[in-house]
Design a protein around this nucleic acid. Structure first.
Lengths: 343, 343
DNA sequence: TTGTACGCGTTATCAT
DNA sequence: ATGATAACGCGTACAA
């Protein structure tokens, strides 16, 4: 037997196909008894409707896609959970999809819109510098969540966005270090061609130094190389090891992600040094792991739950045409813990 | 305009639909020139074929699905990468899909098979105690990867599996602790109704105690409660905090996952104690984070890359009918690091 | 080498 | 309340 179809069920129940369809989709115009009878046989024979056929036919699927950039990006997992709740709450379905670092998220989105008849899209993470005409093909409302630096040339009316002020928050962190006596502060940052959060966080660093009349020392700027896994433990470790072997003086390492900061800590420990006695370390993100690390990580916490909630809200506001696209910037929070100290 | 279809492209190019189809799918019977011309216009107008329609028509899609249990399960991310390589290498497409802890992975699989015309399935993680008749509906070869304790009543010829010997490896870890002078060893384990790796790892613990003539102290067995996020940092932290407040004596904590072990460490630090001076801590999995933690984690390393590779291999062997289903058990490795010491 | 026509499994529209 | 039938967009057998 080939897989069962709606026809088979219809025959078995002695009803028409459309009646079965109505039973499946909870349509109003159906006798509760026949509906129950049909559902019973469906369950009995384990019939499963073919989603491809449904998507093909359906006009609107009441589903919204979340495209996450980077598979091992644990930073987003709590956001995703919140989003799913919000989406389900509104009787929509969430379609979660991962996008590799080298994949083009807009291309993926374009495909998905066709395949799944999406009502909307949430882009989570990534860089997002896309041509305007490509974005225009996306005839579906979308919101950029925790994605920095969208191209200024693209009219901001075409989408919503949620983020923190990466430059300002980065500034705050570095400024805190400076206020606590640090002058030679190394930064583990994104590769030079980064056009997104990496760039912004580096700018914040430079700005803080500048305003405190500290000269930027290029020796202390450690960008990730393209061959490294981006924002990873290992990259933080490698960059810091390299840094330590330079013998350039510094008292603090500021990493633009918590994972890199943890990598940095390990590199410092491996050289027989202590944190925060010998070096202070600061991160960015406010991940759970940062709180559990030992020493616990001084970092910038992004209010991920709130941001996730707001992301869904913004999208649904646009969907229900209650509102036009908006851009919300959330305040982050300086979390001072054990890994950094006053000197 | 409604979205573009293959018809539109055909009209624009002045050719028939099937010619366009041939161009898209790299069929042999087509003039290279027309093919190029068609591809050019496809690119120009940004036409994207509708996947639902394709899947509906296609008999076999040369795609295999990977179903991952638990979204934040970073343990699997490196495995997934390897699998993707292996799958692509064989000109198949990987469809990655997450399954919530409360979802039924077989139901999801059943759906996906219909929707995507899968050639095969890989189940990653989870518990996997499913009724035989449900499994029988899965008319597609599948392999269970790092999933413990499949129901003995299901003929092992219906699927392949890859795993470590959870009980034995767990035994080894606990035995190592005992050999190093620990007698009162607490365990952070799965909830009592767990039928899978959690159970096996607990069995290994008990067996090690028994063989060393140490009585099992129920006070030292700390199962996760159902309301906890399973195998998480927080659960490890909570259980250990509770344990410490009991004032039952112990010198070592063995957690059945690295994340829980890290949570345990934090709980110990928060009580002002030291690792490994006051308490030894051991984990299970061999995650990257365990190596980066401070102190670095003594743990059981599963050879995830090899296992991932073998998973794909086994599946493809069955697909190409070169082989029947097999069950491979990989040796894990005791990784002795800083978090545990001899007393 | 190319085009026509049918059918994949479903939902939506229209009768009844 | 229910059933017949026309799409949905594509792949493919078959004809040309």
């Amino acid at each position: 037997m080939g897989e069962m179809t709606i026809k088979d069920i219809a025959k078995m129940c002695g009803v028409g196909i459309s009646t079965v369809s109505r039973a499946i989709n909870n349509h109003p115009d159906i006798n509760p008894e026949t509906k129950e009878m049909i559902n019973a046989t469906i369950k009995e024979y384990g019939y499963i409707p073919n989603n491809s056929a449904r998507n093909l036919k359906r006009t609107e699927a009441k589903s919204i896609a979340v495209l996450v950039k980077g598979i091992s990006n644990i930073f987003f997992s709590s956001m995703i959970k919140v989003m799913e709740e919000e989406i389900k709450k509104r009787k929509y379905t969430m379609v979660l999809h991962h996008v590799e670092f080298n994949e083009d998220e807009v291309d993926v989105a374009l495909q998905l819109v066709k395949e799944k008849r999406l009502a909307g899209i949430i882009f989570l993470g990534g860089y997002f510098h896309h041509s305007e005409d490509k974005l225009k093909k996306l005839h579906v409302p979308f919101v950029l969540s925790t994605i920095g630096c969208p191209p200024e040339n693209f009219s901001k009316k075409g989408y919503s966005s949620i983020s923190v002020d990466d430059e300002q928050e980065s500034y705050n962190m570095v400024n805190w270090l400076i206020q606590n006596g640090h002058k030679n502060i190394a930064i583990l940052c994104a590769s030079p061609d980064d056009e997104s959060i990496g760039k912004l966080r580096l700018e914040g660093y430079k700005k803080a130094l500048l305003e405190n009349k500290i000269e930027v020392n290029l020796e202390l700027i450690m960008p990730m190389r393209p061959d490294m896994e981006q924002y990873s433990l290992q990259s933080g470790y490698d960059l810091t090891t390299q840094l330590l072997e330079k013998n350039t003086e510094f008292t603090a390492v500021y990493a633009i992600s918590d994972m890199m900061a943890i990598g940095a800590c390990k590199a410092i420990f491996d050289k027989g040094k202590k944190i925060p006695e010998d070096y202070s370390v600061a991160g960015f993100d406010g991940t759970e792991m940062g709180a559990f690390y030992h020493p616990s990580l001084t970092t910038v916490r992004q209010p991920v739950e709130d941001m996730a909630k707001a992301t869904a809200q913004l999208l649904f506001e646009v969907l229900s045409e209650k509102s036009v696209h908006k851009h919300r910037i959330f305040p982050a929070e300086l979390v001072i813990r054990e890994s950094a100290k006053k000197i």
